[in-house]
Every structure is written in C-alpha cells, then in structure tokens.
C-alpha cells in the first residue's frame, strides 16, 4: 500500500483507539479524580458491561440494533447498581483508605471474574453492531461502526464536560474532588457523593463496553488491559482534567497507530509504551495537571 493511504489508515485506527481509550477512561477519571481510590475492579465493571450487553442482545431477536439499544440502557444500570452495592458494603466501611481499597477491589475483581466464568462461560462471544456497513474507500475498506464509535466518544465527552461544569451535581463533585473536608463542612454529603460517583463511574465503564463490544468480543478476562490503559490515560492527562484525558487518549492512540507503521508490531508496542512513560517522567503532573502540591 502507498504511504499516503497507509498513513490515513494508521491515523484512522489511531483515532478509533483514542476514542475507545477516552470512553474507557471517562468513568475512571471520575472515580479516581473525585475519590482518589485505585479501583482495581474497574476493568471488571467494564467486562460485566460487555457480558450483560451480550446477554441482553441475545434476548431480542430481529434487527441487531434493537438488542444493542436494550443493552445500552440495561447494562449500565445493572453495573451501576452492583457498584453501588459494593460501595455501601465494602468501600465505605474502609473509609476509602487507599491501601485497603486496593486489596478490597482485588477481592472484588476475583469475585466478579469468577462469577462471569461460572455463569457466562470461558468463550469470547460477539455482539452484532447495530448496523453493519463497510465504507469502501479507493484503497481499502473500513468499518462504518468504528467511525460511529469516534462520534459516540466525542458526544459522551461533551456530555460529561457539561455535566461537570454546568450542573449542580457537577459542582458538588468538583467541590468534593478539590477538598473533601471543606466540602463536608459546607454541608455536602461527601459520603453520598462518593457512592454516586462510584456507581456513575462503573455505569460509564459499562456504557463504554456496550459501545466497544461490537468491534471486540465479550470475554471474561477482557477487563485487565482496558483497566491499565485507562489508568494510564487518566494519569498522563493529569488528574481531574477532562481535557487532559482527551488529549492523552489522542496522544496514546495516535502514537500507537503511527509507530506501528515503521516497526515490527511488538517493537512498536514497546516503543509506544516507553514513550508514554517518558512523557510522565518529564512531566510528572501529566499533560494538563497542575503541579503537585
């Protein structure tokens, strides 16, 4: 393939990766940004979202879009409910103490993963995209649904941004994020804010999973890699900066896509990983974070 079209393809793929990363990171940037807890089970909420998407899509026969739409509604709700439950039963009792939270959420990870294996099984199962269209470009074909993911990602980012900056709930969250003690003193029920944020974050992970599962598959071990990647995106972007999260996702997605044009795949992955690490080494507060206090 000529260089131009190849670059176009690599950039398109990079954009899709970026969109996927941003989607996955949205929920985590909320949880991590506001609560400052490392939720190791976040990837499992994502996995659950995909598995429930498969389940609800298989309930409905007929056009695949119907099942997909049902999944889009049902999956985030169920996952958010599970997250709310685990927050009330476990995390709150730990006072969100960072180290204890890590162990507890590792425990949660084991439980969710095992239940998925027992009840859903070890197979990778596909969910059909709501529409199946192949864009035939002059040089190669491309999936229209992948472009739809980019659009959905942009839409959700804007919605989150409006939610955080233009609504009262957003204000409460931001207040809690910048200083929980003062927020408490001003009568903000920090405890309840945490519960809502935790559920919301998990719901967003599930939503991302529903959108992504038509181009990947639902599998009970699918949670690990997205967890790591979304952590990376959130930190590189700078804690609490939505703009940073978006830029970081673009940076990581595109560098991964374009570096892969020039090197053998595994070497490209190594270089991209190192590049990301070095960005953080020389800019520890992340791209858009404020310098550490």
């Amino acid at each position: 393939m000529a260089f131009g079209p190849y670059l176009l393809l690599a950039s398109l793929e990079g954009l899709v990766t970026a969109a996927v990363l941003a989607l996955m990171a949205l929920g985590l940037s909320l949880v991590f940004g506001v609560m400052r807890v490392v939720n190791v089970a976040h990837g499992e909420f994502y996995m659950l979202g995909a598995v429930i998407a498969w389940w609800s899509a298989s309930l409905i026969s007929g056009h695949p879009a119907l099942g997909f739409l049902l999944a889009l509604v049902v999956s985030p709700l169920i996952v958010a409910a599970i997250a709310l439950l685990s927050d009330r039963l476990v995390l709150r009792r730990l006072n969100y103490e960072p180290q204890a939270t890590i162990v507890a959420t590792i425990g949660l990870l084991y439980i969710i993963q095992q239940l998925a294996l027992t009840f859903y099984g070890p197979d990778a199962r596909p969910v059909q995209a709501p529409f199946d269209m192949r864009l035939a470009l002059p040089w190669f074909g491309y999936s229209a649904y992948k472009l739809a993911i980019i659009a959905a990602s942009i839409f959700l980012i804007i919605a989150t941004w409006i939610g955080l900056t233009r609504t009262k709930a957003g204000l409460v969250m931001r207040a809690t994020q910048s200083d929980p003690d003062t927020a408490q003193a001003f009568g903000i029920p920090v405890d309840r804010v945490y519960a809502v944020v935790f559920a919301l974050g998990a719901g967003m992970a599930a939503l991302a999973a529903v959108l992504i599962v038509p181009i990947q598959q639902a599998h009970y071990l699918m949670g690990q890699d997205p967890l790591l990647l979304s952590f990376v995106v959130v930190i590189i972007g700078g804690l609490g900066s939505l703009r940073g999260t978006v830029v970081a996702a673009l940076f990581i997605g595109l560098s991964d896509g374009i570096i892969s044009m020039f090197f053998s795949p595994t070497l490209a992955k190594m270089l991209a990983t190192l590049l990301v690490a070095l960005v953080l080494v020389f800019r520890p507060q992340g791209l858009f974070g404020t310098a550490a206090r």
Binding site: Q216, S260, P265, T266
Partner: peptide, 20 residues
C-alpha cells in the same frame, strides 16, 4: 511475516503490511 503482540485487540493497521 507479521508477528502480532498478544496484547493487541485491533488488527486493521497491520493488514497493509500484507504484500500485494
């Protein structure tokens, strides 16, 4: 010979490396 890293979840970008 196209060796795909096991952590990969998307393959489209490697397909152009298949010679014509």
């Amino acid at each position: 010979k196209i060796a795909i890293p096991p952590t990969e979840t998307s393959f489209t970008r490697y397909i152009p490396q298949i010679p014509r």
